[in-house]
Design a protein around this nucleic acid. Structure first.
Lengths: 250, 250
DNA sequence: CGCTTACTTGAGTCTGGTCAAACGGGGTGG
DNA sequence: CCACCCCGTTTGACCAGACTCAAGTAAGCG
C-alpha cells in the first residue's frame, strides 16, 4: 500500500466541484448538511496504491472525488480479472460496508482524492435520510448495470469489439465529469490492464489494439491510451453508447 | 410472453415459507406489516415465459418465491449472454424500479411463483422503513458480488473450471432454500444455457460437460443436469465455495 | 549508462469455434 | 400404432482466434 495521508478538507461538501456539475442530482439542505458531517475526511492516494483489499473488513466507504482506479479479483494462481473502473462520483467499498467483507480489491491508476465515510454511520443515513438511501441503492443498481454490460462484452463480443467497447465506455464515462477536475490527455492504463479487463492475453491484446490504432481510432503513447476517434470506436464496438441521465452522488 | 395470471395470495407474507427459513433475516412487526401491504399479489409464470424485457419500464418489482429463472442480455445479432440466475428470495426488476428501464431480460426456466410489488411504492419503503431500505441495498450489493465472481470466471477461468464453477455455484445456491418448496432433481437448464452463461459455443460446452460427466461429477438427463458430486465440482473449479451468512428478503 | 517497464513482433501450439451429421426421446397427426 | 418431426445432445473433421514462448525495441529513471 503506497503513502496515504488524511488532511484538512480541501473540498467541503458545500463546495463540492462534482456536485456542482449538472450530471449529478441536487440534494436538499438537510441532506447536504448530513453528508457534510458524514464525510469524515479526504484521503489522497498515490498512483499504484491499493485502496481496498479483497478479504478485508474496511471501516470506511469512499466516494472518488478525482482520479481513476480499478476494481479487480484474483484467482489463486495470480490470474487477474478487472471488473470495472472507478471514476469521479463513484462509490467504493459498499460491499464491505454492507456485506462485511470486500470480495474484490481496488487500485489507483492515477493519484486519487477520496471522500472518506464512516462505515458505522451508514445506518444513520438509512434511518434519517430516505433520499440518500435511495441514492445509494441507485448507485448500486447502476454499478450492476455496468457489470452486466461488461459481462456481455467478455462473454460474447469478439476481441476487437471488446477492446473498442471498453475504450469508448471509459472515454464516455470520463467525459461526464471532466469539467470538475479536468480530463486525462491519455488514459493512464497499460495494455496489461486492458488485457485483464477483456479476459485476453497481453500479446493478443497488443495485436488487437494495434488494429484499432491502424484504423486511426486510438494511439498508445506516454504510457497510456489516447482516444482519437470516439465515434469510430463506438461503431466498431457496435455499441449503443452510454445512456445516462443525471445520477446520484453521495 | 406465456400465460400470466394474478390470483389470490396463496402465501401471505406472515406465512411466507421462505422467511421461515433460517437463511433469511427476521423482520420486526412493523416491517412485516408494511411488506404485507407492499406485496400487491402473486404472479404465476410458465416455464419459458419472459418475465421482464430489456428496454421496458416495468411497473413492478418481484421477489421470486419459487422456481428458477435467468437474467440475460442480447447483442444486436442475437448472441446471448446469461448474466445470472434467479432463485427463491431473489429480487427482480430493481434496475427498472430505480433507474427507470430494464437493461436485461428475465426468462423462466421452470414454473415460477413471484411476489409482485408496486414500483411506485418503493419510495414509501425508503421513507418509512430504513431497515428494509438497507436490506434492498444489501441485496443489490450481493447481486453485484455474484456478478463479479461470474465475470472473473468468464474472463479468466478455463472452460472446465468455468463449467464446474457454474454448476457448483447453482447447486450451492439452490441448497440454501430447498427446504421451502423442495429441490429440483435435475437443474432445468439446457447445454445452450450453460454455453451462454460461460461465454462458450454449444459444441465446446457439450465436450466440456462430457469431461465432467466422465469424471462422475454430473450427468445430463431428463432434459437437465444432475449434480452427482458437488465436492468434486468445487475442487475442479478451484473455487472457495459460497460464503454466505443470513441474507435479506423483501 | 545500465536497468526496468511496457510495447511490439514473429513462430508455433492449442483451446475453442464452425460446420455437418447423426442420434434419441417425446409428442403429434395420420 | 406408427411415421415423422422437433429439440436437444453427441461426435467428428477442420479451422481460426487466442495463447505461450521468445526476443527485440523504446522510453524513462537512478
Amino acid at each position: 500500500m503506497g503513502d496515504i495521508k488524511v488532511h484538512e478538507l480541501r473540498y467541503p461538501c458545500s463546495k463540492c466541484p462534482l456536485r456542482a456539475l449538472s450530471v449529478f442530482r441536487d440534494l436538499d439542505d438537510g441532506e447536504l448538511q448530513f453528508i457534510s458531517k458524514f464525510k469524515r475526511g479526504e484521503l489522497a492516494v498515490e498512483r499504484g496504491a491499493t485502496v481496498l483489499v479483497e478479504g478485508n473488513h474496511s471501516a470506511h466507504l469512499y466516494t472518488l472525488l478525482s482520479g481513476l482506479a480499478f476494481r479487480y479479483k484474483l484467482l489463486h494462481d495470480g490470474r487477474r480479472q478487472i471488473l470495472n473502473y472507478a471514476m469521479p462520483g463513484d462509490l467504493l467499498g459498499l460491499q464491505a460496508g454492507l456485506l462485511g467483507e470486500m470480495q474484490h480489491s481496488v487500485e489507483a491508476l492515477s493519484p486519487l482524492l477520496l471522500c472518506v465515510f464512516e462505515r458505522e454511520r451508514v445506518f444513520d443515513l438509512f434511518k434519517n435520510h430516505p433520499g440518500l438511501s435511495y441514492d445509494i441503492t441507485w448507485i448500486a443498481a447502476r454499478e450492476e448495470q455496468m457489470l452486466d454490460e461488461n459481462l456481455l462484452s467478455v462473454g460474447r463480443r469478439s476481441a476487437v469489439e471488446r477492446a473498442a467497447y471498453l475504450l469508448s465506455f471509459l472515454y464516455a464515462r470520463l467525459q461526464r465529469t471532466k469539467a470538475a477536475f479536468g480530463a486525462f490527455r491519455v488514459l493512464p492504463i497499460t495494455q496489461q490492464h486492458v488485457a485483464d479487463t477483456l479476459g485476453l492475453s497481453l500479446v493478443h491484446t497488443n495485436k488487437t489494439l494495434r488494429k484499432l490504432a491502424q484504423r486511426g481510432l486510438l494511439s498508445w503513447r506516454e504510457g497510456g491510451c489516447e482516444i482519437k476517434d470516439a465515434e469510430g470506436l463506438l461503431a466498431t464496438a457496435r455499441w449503443a453508447g452510454l445512456a445516462e441521465t443525471r445520477r446520484a452522488l453521495i
